[in-house]
Design a protein around this nucleic acid. Structure first.
Lengths: 238, 238, 238, 238
DNA sequence: CATGAATGAGCCTTCATTCAT
DNA sequence: GATGAATGAAGGCTCATTCAT
């Protein structure tokens, strides 16, 4: 009863790992038979563990995202808050550079019919949020940055890295961009912590200044509501 | 001689426009028959104008890139150098956000067998280069930025914009990143124009400081050679 | 009323000639548009003169076969009976070598839905028959050879010529074969003119010898009937 | 390891046999789906065994040619040299009559991209050569006949048989032709074994007679060289 | 009448999925 | 459980034929 389990589990691992390799090399379009052949198993075996190609794809993506969650926790315990956040972002970007499908998974709201991937993405966002909160507390990052911003930045960074023909310069540009998120005198003055905001805390639109009354934080009810929704149910965000 | 041409040319336009829409919506994988159906023509008509799917894809991509070239020239004549460059970058990013395939085309060196697309990309890079040169002359951007950096930034920016669930915040993050390229006191001090560099002008690696001798500009022979190649033959870049 | 006729007729000729060339070069499978393009006309013009590809094919084949009929008549008037027949056979074989479709037409009973080709083939057989009759009268060919035999020999000869890698040797083999049809002492003894036959005049099966009664000419009622049919209606032959 | 093989091998056989039938009936142009339907399998199954239509075609042709090689060896061991050769020729002709494509394969030098067919044709020629050599030794056939002549004769014979509406008469004509290859007093006088040749041994052109010097065997250096090439490398022949 | 663009059925081929072995 | 053969629905592409210009 336990003996065959070991075999099966190992097969599952092999298929998963092989699929990840092949997807990374040639995209999600590769045929299942190629994956099966490279994994050294029959097509039927793939189907035993992953009832459809879509499920296999999701499993691969979820697996990689879970690894990023693990990495996030590692950074959290092994580096100062600021370094942890930025180190993690760079690690994700490097890992996902050139793997369009993996990036898509990070932000895709819908289209993935099974829950596995959604849950992994959820955990990824939470881990990112934890790193971000600590970095903010430590004053290592602008306080008006959201976790969503970083998730999107991750995707953009990976695309940038993949697009730059010169790896070294790609890294340099990336560092320049990330440095823009660190606290500066200017950003401090603009941050939500300052008593009076010049731009909408939610979308950044410049606010008209009223000398009387409580200083405005949002450009209008739309952004106020949006920020409220996030506070109530962070998963819905947007 | 002109009579049938009118019909045919209009059909060609319709197919091209429809293909662009469908590609943007569902990616390059959509079937030609779907494009044909949506364009209101038969499959054969698509093939009359574009002898293979690959050619159709390239035509769509090249068309969009050419439009960006036109936009670049428009910005060049209608705005101050700094605004022209940044306005153009934002326009490209907004247009290409969510259109992975279009972005791929911008940086793909090879793999597109027909010359049309390659030529369009070439013109795009040249237009970008012209805007960049003027912006540098006007002191509106860090002088250590290359056209390649901006092309990659464009791709990354489009990905970021597409990835951010909140359009407004996506724009804000983007603006933050682009602002990082503008000249600041710090960047001035780091620029190649300064007498002594702290980082490699080519790749940004921190340089060890030697108090004697001519101040180093590169981290080593690799980067020095790379910069030289670019000066000699800008098209090879990298 | 007559002016456009001239144009049209010329176009018909051009298409017919071009089609013949292209069919000979690349087989019957070539697309009509290629023929039209090479003929310098539009596809519609081809269809004006030949309402379907099949009809065009038949027209080409019939045209070539008619030319052979003309050639047959030329040989009949310009050479001695024996030379006329053998010269004609060689000419047909040389012309049709390597043109499978043209050969098929010579013997195909059915499958060509329109009458044009059938009529041409009929005339070809008649012309062949006339040459054969004269040659027999002149004693230049074995008297037990039928027109059908020669038609089939023509097809086989063309195939042989096309199949032999060495043109000169191909011709030699062909000559050997044709010489087999000329009268020899042996064939004379076997001919129907001899009073007693050893083989069936129709199919060549050896006859059992009966010392009494009228000597048999056929191996049985089947062959007797077949010979009779040919005498009554030569076109049905077989 | 052997279990599924049984099914698969049987399917392969069925497809091969069915394809042969259909090709024989309707030519090489028939669609694969028709073959699949008639074989009682799905289109994909055909592709599993024959990765492209071209490969299937070659497999069918090679299969039939190999059978002829087997038949040649059978004749060689079971009949006197002369009968073996002529019996074999008749068998090939009867089998290939009406199967244009099969005949084409026998003489096509190139155009078949995969080696299978070429190898089979090679073996066919070698088998034919062995039969021919023995027949010559036995004095059962004119000594100036080459294997190439017989290959071409085979093709021509098949075409003749297919073209003749009357099977029995077709056979008779064929026999007449083949008899032309047997040794006669006349041919003996013309053969290369005779001390003085009147025609070129290679191509049959009449030779001008020189009373002095060694009697010529070839009409010129071209034919002499050709004969020499054949002696050195029979596969290049031509 | 000529033109050549439009049509759409059909072909070869691939591949996710099922199922007999 | 594993295997890999079988299936059949698309997809890209061609081309005979029709029809607007």
């Amino acid at each position: 009863m336990t003996a065959p389990r070991a075999d099966a589990r190992r097969n599952r691992e092999v298929v998963l790992r092989t699929a990840a390799e092949v997807f990374a090399e040639d995209g999600l379009e590769v045929s299942l038979s190629r994956i099966a052949r490279r994994a050294g198993v029959g097509a039927g075996t793939v189907y035993r563990h992953f009832p459809s190609k879509e499920i296999l794809v999701e499993a691969v993506l979820a697996d990689h995202i879970e690894r990023m969650v693990v990495a996030a926790d590692r950074w959290a315990t092994q580096a100062a808050p600021g370094e942890a956040l930025f180190g993690f972002l760079v690690e994700v970007i490097e890992k996902f550079a050139g793997r369009q499908a993996f990036c898509d998974a990070l932000t895709a709201d819908r289209g993935w019919p099974h829950a596995t991937l959604g849950a992994a993405v959820q955990r990824f966002h939470e881990a990112l949020d934890r790193l971000l909160a600590k970095a903010k507390q430590a004053g290592a990052i602008r306080p008006d940055v959201h976790a969503d911003d970083l998730a999107a930045l991750t995707v953009g960074g990976a695309a940038l890295r993949a697009a730059h023909r010169n790896r070294a310069r790609g890294s340099r540009v990336l560092r320049m961009l990330l440095d823009g998120l660190r606290v500066t005198e200017t950003t401090l003055r603009d941050s939500p912590e300052a008593s009076r905001h010049e731009t909408c805390v939610e979308c950044g639109t410049r606010l008209s200044v009223h000398l009387t009354g409580r200083p405005a934080r949002y450009c209008g009810p739309t952004c106020r509501q949006r920020a409220r929704r996030r506070r109530v149910d962070p998963s819905r965000a947007g």
